[in-house]
Design a protein around this nucleic acid. Structure first.
Length: 219
DNA sequence: ATCCCGAGGG
DNA sequence: CCCTCTGGAT
């Protein structure tokens, strides 16, 4: 058995770029979910996307964004109405509460403008590090780094992008591999892939769009 | 039956 | 740390 030549760092970077390019093509709805949104729309879409697929989020956002144009619009939406409108995205009570509360704070404390710093975003009720990172990266061009969750961690190891278990170290490895400007989208694409095809228990390698680029570590 | 692309609260 | 929210996928 001939030993495979070790992949250089430059080769790994190119492979990472190829993987993200192919995932973007394979999951257009994931790309769509983060593209071409105002900060407020992006914030709402991101809150809705928790525990929910991009396809379902994309099904409710057009009507939502046509009706609610400002933070104040959400803040004064009557109890029950917004809940019904976002019902199909799950967790509708807590999500509606988060959207209303964050919108109220934006209207009251930020002049109706979604804040553009991590500290201010995380202070908004219903907005955590993950949501804040997506808004920073895709609405304000501050694409500083990956936020590593279980999907991003698992896929990064499986694809041979890192050997680390610690999310902070995985984040460092990914940031070294993927240039600024592609990180937020990269994380989103890895997550979509990790939910739909490269699932934890039984990855469906036979239909995987990045099968040729994947060493399948640990599978 | 079990598992979730997150956040708040105990 | 733990639990809960909630609907849908598997």
């Amino acid at each position: 058995m001939a030993k495979k030549p070790k992949e250089t760092f430059e080769e790994k970077k190119r492979r990472a770029a190829t993987v993200l390019r192919r995932l973007a093509k394979a999951y257009p709805e994931a790309k769509c979910a983060l593209d071409h949104r105002t900060p407020l729309e992006l914030l709402v879409a991101t809150i809705l996307s928790a525990q929910c697929t991009d396809v379902r989020v994309n099904m409710v956002t057009p009507q939502l964004f046509a009706k609610y144009r400002t933070a104040a619009d959400y803040a004064r939406s009557p109890r029950g109405v917004l809940e019904r409108e976002i019902r199909s995205t799950g967790f509708f009570n807590s999500k509606a509460k988060s959207i209303r509360a964050a919108a109220a704070a934006i209207a009251a404390e930020h002049g109706g403008k979604v804040p553009d710093t991590m500290e201010a975003l995380v202070r908004l009720p219903g907005v955590g590090r993950k949501t804040a990172n997506v808004v920073l990266g895709n609405a304000f061009g501050k694409d500083e780094g990956f936020v590593v969750d279980t999907h991003v961690g698992r896929l990064s190891r499986r694809l041979g992008f890192t050997r680390e278990a610690d999310p902070v170290k995985v984040e460092g490895d990914l940031n070294a591999l993927v240039p600024k400007g592609r990180r937020t989208m990269g994380a989103h694409l890895l997550i979509a892939h990790g939910r739909q095809i490269c699932v934890a228990r039984k990855p469906r390698c036979e239909v995987c769009p990045v099968n040729p680029q994947c060493p399948k570590i640990g599978v």
